[in-house]
Design a protein around this nucleic acid. Sequence first.
RNA 1: GCGCCCGUAGCUCAAUUGGAUAGAGCACCAGACUACGAAUCUGGGGGUUGGAGGUUCGAGUCCUUCCGGGCGCGCCA
Length: 592
Amino acid sequence: MTDNIYAEMRSRVLDALQAAAPDLPAEVGARVEVTAAKDPAHGDMATNAAMVAAKAARRKPAELAAQIVSALATDPLVAEAAAAGPGFVNLRLKPESWRALLPDVLRSGEAYGESTVGQGGRANVEYVSANPTGPMHIGHCRGAVVGDALANLLAKGGYDVTKEFYINDAGAQVTALAWAAYWRYLQAIGSPIDEAEFTEEVPGGLQYRGDYLIPVGQALAETYGKSLAEPDGGIAAPHLWLDTVRDFTLERMMESIREDLAALGVRQDVFTSERALAAAGATDAVIERLRAADLIYEGTLEPPKGKLPDDWEPRQQTLFRATLFGDDVDRPLRKSDGSNTYFANDIAYHADKIARGFEVLIDVWGADHGGYVSRMKSAVKALGGNLDVVLCQIVHVLKDGEPVRMSKRAGTFITLRDLLDEVGRDAVRFTMLTRKSDAQMEFDIAAAVAQTRENPVFYVQYAHARCRSVLRAAAEMFGADAVSDSALADVRLASLENEAELAVIRRLLSWPRMVEAAALAREPHRIAFFLYDLAADFHMLWNRGRDDAALRFLQPENRDETLARVALVAATAVVIRSGLAVMGVTPVEEMR
RNA sequence: GCGCCCGUAGCUCAAUUGGAUAGAGCACCAGACUACGAAUCUGGGGGUUGGAGGUUCGAGUCCUUCCGGGCGCGCCA
């Protein structure tokens, strides 16, 4: 018997189905589900087995359902089985069937819910991957949280997970960054050149004017003195300083990004540099590999339909046959000057991930990369792999009900640090996970810090704090040893028969199934909703004790009953911690 | 113009991935504190799931089309 009671019942349903209709094709069995009943009147669980098997078995769903019912009615775990609706089989388990699994929660601790669906498969989750040209802002935050939680979720689901950051440190934007840092450097050494004068010298104009480069300029001045400028403080020839300043600045930017990530509680295992990969020849190698497979040609793309860009002209380009793998058009790999496109580098990067032995590739991107999904998937498919992309839609930040406008140009964009300072890491992480990632969300700063039920972070934390409060009181009553998780795993639980108690138990025992389903769907937000529901069950149970003193957890005159209830409370705390750990949120011991 | 994402209660969002009578919170109305913390709980009203077709035992979910919002659209990354 596994600790996943839904998986256990599913295998018993499959046995019953097999007996009722032998020789069903395997794909029918794969479609059989055992789910928690939505409506308590239907029992605890329901299965669709009769309906999905009806066609292949050439039997009526109701007939099959009746046979499954009679087989399961005598199952020792089952109190009641009934056919219903168009062919559902509803199951009500005996209360002791549920209670019997509660000790597993206490014995497993935070590991409870770990699953083997991932079968140890090597998974790579790439997320954040911000351009290293400035501090992280709110736009990066959602992807960082979703990616991190997804990676944790997959790890709990039995995958061997690597958390990865792709540094976009090749291309024109880092050259622009170097110029911008050089400007701050000139200021730091007291150069007589003014901004307008300098800007004229910068190819493409001066970008990245934010204050955050001022300390970089000062650090450059400290490290290199005036050696990177002309003796009179003028602009030296770029080849004398550009590489130095660029590498120096990139290092500083990555350092600051790592600090921002650390403040958010994100620590990634691998940082891969686009520049290093390209310099090692990975891009050229992958292009040759694709060429050998006849997936590359020199050609001219059709102009986009509708209104043409003003400067449209047909160009001969090196193209990848993305259309063979589901993309809309073939995609360029080389610019007209012969250098590689970002896309080409990105193909090389994904080939590198495959070469490193990852079977599951997941990229977490912002919505502005939506147009990039199909081409990247097609490229990975061409390389013999498979790529999942989780797109995180825009976050609109509200403060006091008013939208906070974000404009880099105006310098009013909110940095990740600003948000963390105002809201706190736990609230940021939890709130970012209270929407499915492909829907836009509003992030109301006031709501995220509110101490009320409307704030799920608070609501779940409060439930955990209440559990801990009961456990502290129980420890005083019976001694800490008597209420340790391992001691509670051995107490008699038969007295747990109140409906509100059983509801909590059922919720706790559905945690492993929730982990599996969320991991397979790549949907970490489900964890947040699960914890909210669990917290609601627990708060309800708590208040039963308010209305009726006999239902309180702690009954000084009845040790056995009290210990059973305390075991339930301890198990609730364990599952909340287990879920919060996936989300990267710290459980609190008490509210104040 | 084309592609992708989204559209669910007045508001913010769920819906076990195609399952039964679409659920929570906020707001509104009516209740429960001599406390294992009422920062919570109980009850009530509120829906043609943007519109129209289609697929099947069964559709918020899949397909077609239209409407509305967002993101993107050949040498930016």
